[in-house]
Design a protein around this nucleic acid. Structure first.
Lengths: 363, 363
DNA sequence: AAACCATCTGCCTTCGAATGCAAACCTTCG
DNA sequence: CGAAGGTTTGCATTCGAAGGCAGATGGTTT
């Protein structure tokens, strides 16, 4: 009797009707249901599902049997409320990022789930949506945020005020200390430019990505800076949108702008470089790389296809994702850790879409 | 005084210390904090954040001011607990799906977020992980599940017992009624085969996907059946893994198996078809489609690139994602809706990687 | 047999927001 | 002025699990 009446104090006081209806049956069972069936207290059930709790063998057996019988699974929502840990991290990713690096998301998800954490996905359509999104992210009480999209300084402040660990992926803020995992785009740009110049190219053209893409700006600016350093000023730049078509269109625009085709085209990503190559071959009837050199950035799958064999600089996406995961997890465990920026070097892929100087001494 | 003491009964009875410390400041504020600052009840705060609730203008103004001041955001976890709606749906997706259709995930996310629902991501590495995963999915109390991965009948039963609406994406179960959004792969296969045969091809080879891929089986079997119907028996089949390399390797295997290269190769996806094309061109020195016809399935971006211009059947991914979203949402609103299967026709893309019969009468 | 310790177990409160109910407050009108 | 009606508001309970505390149980020591 003491056991029975102790099940659910409310059941004791309020009308017994509540106690009768067996939770809609088949609907989800709660720890109280399991407790009742196993004739133990709700706390006992809770403890049985907590690894390392103090529970006798016989009790655990009884509870587990009842739990299986009812198909009981602990309610993570209720648990989150009391433990203040949702075991979810938000990943904010743009259509673009996912299109060109579908593995980013998968790697992040893999890394987090290995640590018992799930990814709550926030996809960005328009950059302006981020404000509403941010509120929502915080409402869901995520334990951390991976931000593969732009964020203003004030928005960062908002997250920081809430003490939610977060990491930028492939972007950063320079005016304040934040966690960030990046790939050194300008290092890649320098490598490309140096080898192109070394091979004797004289006129260059650049097809950038969207102006609001941080990565594109770094790549484009890095290339321009390197060119300037080496004496090539006023290099023509046209703006693309990372798509195949815009790579093709970019080549035509460059021809117009310069008055002829450049010797070498530096594209802010591989897909545009591929579009550019196809345009050079099929529309201009050129041989790549004999007649024109075309290089890209990213190291995506198609860059390795025989038809292209692109000269590019690849990002170590998997290692970057791993880094982001562990940075977040460390900061969930210890919120006091200071911000950290981790910069990875790109991997140079010589390929065969550009004439390069044979070898390059260490800069 | 009545207001003050009514804030949180616990504050009244237990030690006043709890009431004093202002919730760690800067940490997240609760509706009680807002209530206290605005000198109203917690219920009032709750109502101010519920659209359509009965609240006077003056109260709403005061509450909103206090909320802004404290940076209050309602706790979605707590809300979910009481409303029994988490506003999250699980999307189970395999590495593979996301690799070849990154837009599936984005489209699903877009569709759901338009209805105030967020995507909780579950990525599959090994198919066997699904058991553990399923438990976890249910623990998170998601309002629905989109399953872009295989699931056994018993696993389906488990979800159904919990009364969680779910939809299969591009797969289905034939032995029980379930919700599913599919693309008619065999219709696509039939179209391809018919036109290839019509154009006079005599020997065929098939490069299938992984044997455990439902989509691959449908495509491969569909092609085999159509071929048999038209009098071509014992078509050679080799097994690939959907990758570029396996498409290339597949062509070599077919040559070995048949003793010569087939007139036409049907690949279970576009990426293998592309690998196969590159192999035919660069290793065998063939002209595609003059010397050999190569076709694929999917209609992914690269299939449209000038270097390939693949003959393929495309899946209307966006429409399929929309369908999945609305099927889930309808069933969240009304769990009694009977299961439904929605089958989309693929879009035929003639391309230029195969010699096809000019036109085809309606079958 | 008493004293002591370790191990289990149950009681009760807690997390933060939603909501049925009733009390309080306004309007309006007879 | 008071009754009737509608509108605001607060009270108290609820969702489901976690965990501090204390009581119960069992075993060991003196």
């Amino acid at each position: 009797m003491s056991t029975a009446s102790s099940l659910r104090n409310k059941a004791g006081r309020s009308s017994p009707v509540r106690d009768n209806h067996p939770r809609d049956n088949s609907g989800r069972a709660t720890s109280y249901d399991v407790a009742k069936l196993a004739r133990v207290s709700q706390s006992a059930v809770s403890r049985c599902f907590k690894p390392g709790a103090s529970v006798s063998k016989s009790m655990r057996a009884r509870v587990m049997k009842a739990a299986t019988q009812l198909g009981y699974q602990p309610n993570a929502i209720a648990r989150s409320l009391i433990t203040r840990r949702s075991n979810m991290v938000a990943v904010v990713i743009s259509q673009q990022t996912n299109q060109y690096y579908p593995e980013v998301l998968v790697e992040l998800s893999r890394g987090f789930s290995g640590r018992g954490i799930r990814v709550l996905l926030f996809t960005l359509e328009h950059e302006s949506d981020i404000d509403v999104l941010l509120d929502q992210i915080l409402q869901y009480q995520v334990d951390g945020v991976v931000e593969a999209a732009r964020l203003s300084s004030s928005q960062v402040e908002m997250i920081e005020r809430r003490r939610v660990p977060f990491v930028f992926f492939n972007r950063t803020l320079h005016d304040r200390p934040v966690n960030a995992v990046c790939c050194d785009q300008s290092e890649g740009a320098r490598w490309l430019v140096k080898r192109l110049v070394g091979a004797g190219h004289k006129t260059f053209g650049i097809i950038s990505g969207p102006v609001d893409s941080a990565v594109s700006v770094e790549r484009t600016q890095g290339a321009l800076d390197s060119l300037t350093e080496l004496g090539f000023k006023n290099t023509a730049v046209v703006i693309g949108d990372y798509s195949y078509d815009s790579g093709a269109a970019g080549l035509r625009s460059l021809e117009q702008k310069i008055g002829k085709l450049p010797d070498a085209v530096i594209c802010a990503n591989d897909v545009m470089a591929i579009g550019c190559m196809d345009e050079a071959r099929f529309r201009y009837g050129l041989d790549v790389p004999k007649d024109i050199s075309i290089v890209g950035f990213d190291g995506v799958g198609p860059a390795r296809w025989s038809s292209y064999d692109l000269t590019t600089v690849a990002q170590p996406v998997q290692r970057m994702a791993d880094a982001a995961v562990s940075m977040i997890c460390e900061r969930i465990a210890n919120p006091e850790l200071p911000p950290e920026k981790r910069m990875f070097s790109p991997v140079m892929v010589p390929g065969n879409s550009a004439r390069l100087r044979r070898s390059v001494e260490r800069s």
